[in-house]
Amino acid sequence: MNLVDISGLTVTFSQYEGQVQAVRGVNLHVAEGESVGIVGESGSGKSVTCMAVMRLLREPQARIAADRLELAGTDVLAADRRTLASLRGRAAAMIFQDPMTAFDPVFTIGHQIIETIRAHRRVSKPEARAEAADLLRRVEIKNAETVLGYYPHQLSGGMLQRAMIAMALSCRPKILFADEPTTALDVTIQAQILQLIKELQAEFGMGLVMVTHDLGVVAETVDRVVVMYGGKIMEQGPVEAIFDDPKHPYTRALLASMPGQIGGRRRLTEIKGASPNPANPPSGCPFHPRCSLADAGCARAMPAFDVLTPGREAACWRLQ
């Protein structure tokens, strides 16, 4: 069974400027215990895809349509509020970019972890508290008992992100969505948090969806990569294959533009132009205005996926 099963997902936001399609026909499958990285820039639709399958987008401003939108075997489009609430936090948990704003500032860390545990399981408060302390210890927070009594403002960003991970894991979810979990943190703390997530994923045997703009984070943490651009998937495949032999021009350009790969001060390979405006996306392949290989055909229609090897797909007219 797939933990995440998405086919033909489109998400449309109603805004002042009109209808904005943030996600345009995305298929995504995550198997049990699998780790998948969704890479893309702002506006690529990577976060919106995860928020849609968790049904965390504000509706009806966001309109979700899909042929199939399932989370741990439950159709989340058909699910009522109660079913959704019992899925979230229990079957599927999520951590976010900025740990400083992710906790309710007026309650203690302990209160917020305990309330998560008790929202899903019938355990007494002292039991939940003991579990919460164990969880904090597991994410390598020393003096866990003291930290339970702390308010969010008393902890650093790195500590808060650890506590956030502990809270997300409190009901042993089958899948964890991590939306840019290290972007707001210092370099050394980033590496620590990524390593922690990797360890816990293996230990708990959970699925992991790592949403990031940082190819380095992907190289460090996941088995499979999905590259998104302009609300569509450009390429996906096993992480080694993507890094060794990128097929899609966008993936190639992205890898080539990574700074610091070779020693010495030098000009970098840049991708000309700017990311597409979601309110007015380019016709055909969204990358064609910036693509060095594009021809007239690329502007006409979005190409279908070429299955290169099983599990390895790219959507580009120039692949043939």
């Binding site: 590496a191 940082d214 380095g216 190289a219 460090e220 080694e240 990574m258 790969q261």
Partner: peptide, 12 residues
């Protein structure tokens, strides 16, 4: 420590 924290450029 700073240099060691730079993410790998390749999954290998």
């Amino acid at each position: 420590a700073l240099l060691d924290a730079i993410p790998a450029a390749n999954p290998r």
